[in-house]
């Protein structure tokens, strides 16, 4: 499976997805695939089965303020050195995304962290609860609307 074959395969199965390749002098760059929300889990399944990307590197989110939240996941094919960075955009105000946990077991903790930090509810996640912050914490800190030095008496 080379990067070219991967791009062809993605183009066949997901014609509306946008695929960006890295610069030719940087062969380690991933294929950046921008997907619609309903293609998120099917693409992950295709990446795992057809592209051989069985290694789940990480999953996170980015807050683009008025434009909404981006959910990102990176998967790698360790044998063929092909990496895919999948992205999907949640509409402004939306905070729900299908979960990759049924496809990749590593997404379990990564998505719990996204929920903790951004408030994104992952549908289909087996056990969505806060992972890093206290269970009774209010607010989702990595959103741009949350101040870094929010006070929390009496500790700070």
């Amino acid at each position: 499976m080379t990067a070219d074959q991967a791009v062809t395969l993605i183009g066949e199965r997901f014609p509306e997805a946008q695929v960006e390749r890295g610069a030719p002098d940087r062969p380690g760059d991933p294929l950046v695939v921008s997907l619609r929300l309903d293609q998120w889990v099917p693409f992950a399944q295709v990446a795992k089965d057809a592209l051989g990307c069985r290694f789940f590197a990480f999953s996170t989110a980015v807050d683009w303020k008025e434009q909404g939240l981006d959910v990102i996941a990176r998967v790698d094919n360790l044998d063929d050195r092909v990496s895919v960075l999948m992205k999907t955009r949640l509409a402004a105000g939306a905070s729900s995304c299908p979960s990759l946990a049924p496809v990749y077991r590593g997404a379990d903790w990564m998505e719990r962290e996204c929920y903790d930090m951004f408030g994104i509810r992952f549908e289909g996640h087996p056990d969505l609860r806060r992972i890093l912050l206290s269970d009774d914490w209010e607010g989702h800190p990595l959103l741009k609307s949350y101040a870094v030095d929010t006070p929390h008496p009496p500790y700070r």
């Binding site: 290694f55 590197a57 990749y104 077991r105 590593g106």
Partner: peptide, 8 residues
């Protein structure tokens, strides 16, 4: 091996 790759 399979678990190791799946979890990352």
């Amino acid at each position: 091996r399979e678990l190791a790759e799946d979890v990352g």
